[in-house]
């Protein structure tokens, strides 16, 4: 399972990329693999504010519904509209074209490094 060094992670299997005061959030390769074929995604409205730990959307596979949680406080500035028509991008390219949402950060939350996330996965095996 790929866990890119340059990203940060959550215990709920989201990844986070910081660029200045904006973060991009998606789900990890491990998470998409656990879910199986993603068939539906519920994205938040642009302009909505979330506190860290809030659910900002859901991702559904054929079998399961899974909530998406933001690890930071912030306001939605962009959502990946392409996922509405092609949610399978989350399976195909979870760290790239499968990104889900961008937030302007107003407060940082608890994040794991790649190494810490890898350890978390090993422990949960």
């Amino acid at each position: 399972m790929s866990i890119p060094e340059e990203l940060q992670y959550t215990k709920t299997h989201e990844w986070v990329r910081h660029e200045d005061d904006v973060v991009t959030i998606g789900i990890t390769e491990h998470a998409q693999d656990e879910l199986g074929d993603v068939v539906f995604i519920e994205l938040p409205e642009i302009g909505t504010s979330f506190a860290s730990g809030d659910s900002f959307g859901t991702v559904e596979s054929v079998k399961a519904v899974s909530d998406l949680y933001t690890p930071v406080d912030g306001e939605v500035v962009e959502v990946n509209e392409a996922l509405n028509d092609a949610p399978e991008k989350i399976n195909e390219d979870s760290y790239g074209e499968g990104w889900i949402v961008r937030l302007r950060v107003s407060g940082e939350g608890d994040l794991l490094s790649a190494e810490e996330y890898e350890k978390l996965l090993e422990e949960s095996e």
Binding site: G36, D37, S61, K63
Partner: peptide
């Protein structure tokens, strides 16, 4: 087994 290659 719940899936092999994928449900779809």
């Amino acid at each position: 087994p719940v899936q092999y290659e994928g449900i779809k």
